[in-house]
Amino acid sequence: MWYIAAMALSIGFGLSLAALAGAFGQSRAVSSALEGMARQPEAAGQIQTAMIIGLAFIESLVIYVLVIAFLLNGKIPAVDTIAAVMEKAH
């Protein structure tokens, strides 16, 4: 039971932590890119390309956690199964 509880908690906390860190990194990247674009509008296209590449790299790290979360999510049994096991245990 502890095993399943730890897994369920780790999915939620792990994904939220990854989303938090990813959002922080992406916000920094986008704000710097916007500053650069505002200062040099003629270089906006190049800055945008580089920004999207950076965002893709940051986002892929969050996506790794999402994939792992889905993998772990498949291992958690359904609520009915757990309830039946607990009924039997009592």
Binding site: A56, F57, E59, S60, I63, Y64, L66, V67, F70
Partner: peptide, 16 residues
């Protein structure tokens, strides 16, 4: 690996 997981994770997560 990163190309695979990025595309797969994004589209699978979106569809889910």
């Amino acid at each position: 690996l990163s190309l695979t997981l990025r595309l797969y994770g994004n589209i699978m997560g979106e569809d889910t």
